[in-house]
Nucleic acid binder design. Structure first.
Ligand SMILES: [Zn+2]
Ligand SMILES: [Zn+2]
Lengths: 264, 264
DNA sequence: CCAAGGAACAGAGA
DNA sequence: CTCTCTGTTCCTTG
């Protein structure tokens, strides 16, 4: 799950719980993530006071005062979660103990990572954030023969969209996922921009999608998984026209769409 | 059971019984396998004459003449068996009636499948067959940090080895199952190649392993289950040094080994 | 530069 | 006793 809406949900829950709280202790239960957790990670952030929590694309950024490192960065990968709990979890990797409670990073598949330092956001080569990309910016990234589905997921062009929301957005925009990016022009650009905004906003409002055991904060579940229009609905009826939803393979990932409503 | 030696045994028994025999009728008793049996499966192979029976990794391949489909492919999954019998079996899924008798595919757990068509073997992304992998080929697949036990079971790297023979082979080679694949070098590669060859050859000679009610052909049993050196022998004494055999969990499967004889 | 595939990883589900 | 799929990203190979 951890695409833009899920990371946004997580960021908000952490901010609500721990803003201005102090980090007492940091425990790295298992450092073997996509990027190994640095040995000095705990000492870099211990003693820090949480000054802000924000999101950049799918990255989570925490700003600290009074710690060696001024920032902590997280990427949740495929299966990463951030829980507010004191209980131990089998796939727990990092535990940050605030004065008001614990924040636990759980990541069964180890595709996520965390890093402490300064100006960490600057090192990320991200395009404009999907939530507030302008129409001109969107138009500018729709270049080349790559398929539009793939381009929507290129974090260096537009940040925050992953495999679930790419399919959902293209359905709402009425655009066929195999369309070359540079063939998305005119009205379609406008529809795409609207679809990106509305799909992501609605998903954030519902606290993201909870599939495969995803939850956030105090083991709460999101609700967008009940609103999927095409994702994981192969063979089911299109909610608009009744045609059977099709699943195809695009650059190693699954894409779902309605062959009737989504034209090239 | 259906790893390389069992599938080889099954292939030989079918070839011996039905080579050049004609398929009179095909009945799909229950099409709900891992991959549903195609509706036109019976019509694709009825009338065919069995020209050859072979094995690719754990797959069974039958070549036909005079039928719409030139090949029939089987994978036995976890619990699949091929019996030469006229009697009905409770977990029977497909029955192929030759002029000389019946071939029945039985699969209680439904993890196997069968498919008719042309060039079916080409669609399988299998590595070199474990029975005739060269030392250079073996060396080439021993890359990455994955554990050697897991790599031996990756069908796209080396085809035919499953959970039973992986443990047996590593014991004979004197290699610890947790060793990273890229740390298996030099003499160990040679020992591994030899172990693969000899363990599988011996198992084929004994008609495979019969556990959990596996049998083949005319309800015959294999004999390799009486030769297991480590598989399913947790707590028993190592046949070489007397140390107690240990069972561990590796990527969701059980692995058995001798902590004394098998070093990293 | 682009495209495609693999690698890293663990669990669920068929 | 099996295989394929999954929310991501990065690297290598043409
Ligand atoms: Zn439709
Ligand atoms: Zn021993």
């Amino acid at each position: 799950m951890p695409e833009l809406p899920e990371v946004e949900t997580v960021a908000r829950s952490i901010k609500k719980e721990f803003l201005n709280c102090k980090i007492l202790r940091v425990r790295v239960t298992d450092c073997r993530l996509r990027e190994p957790v640095a040995v000095d990670y705990p000492s870099q952030i211990a003693g820090g006071v949480l000054q802000d929590v924000s999101r950049r694309g799918k990255y989570l950024l925490m700003r600290l005062r009074h710690a060696a490192a001024s920032e902590v960065l997280f990427h949740l990968g495929m299966s990463g979660r951030m829980l507010l709990t004191t209980e131990f979890h089998p796939h727990e990797r990092v535990r940050i103990e605030f004065d008001r409670g614990c924040l636990v990073f759980i990541d069964p598949r180890r595709f996520g990572f965390t890093r402490a330092g300064a100006h960490l956001a600057d090192s990320l080569t991200l395009g404009p954030d999907a939530l507030d990309i302008s129409r001109a910016q969107l138009k500018a990234i729709l270049t080349g023969k790559r398929e539009i589905k793939e381009v929507l997921m290129m974090q260096n062009r537009i940040a925050g969209i992953g495999n679930i929301y790419a399919s959902e957005i293209l359905f709402v925009a009425g655009i066929h996922p195999l369309t070359p990016a540079d063939a998305v022009t005119g009205q379609a650009v406008y529809r795409l921009q609207q679809a990106i905004y509305h799909v992501l906003r609605e998903a954030i409002r519902l606290k993201g999608s909870s599939i495969a055991d995803f939850y956030y904060g105090k083991a709460q579940q999101g609700g967008y998984q009940n609103r999927f229009k095409v994702y994981d609905r192969e063979g089911a009826s299109c909610i608009t026209c009744g045609t059977k939803i099709i699943k195809i393979r695009q650059c190693g990932r699954s894409t779902w769409f309605c062959p009737q409503c989504q034209v090239r």
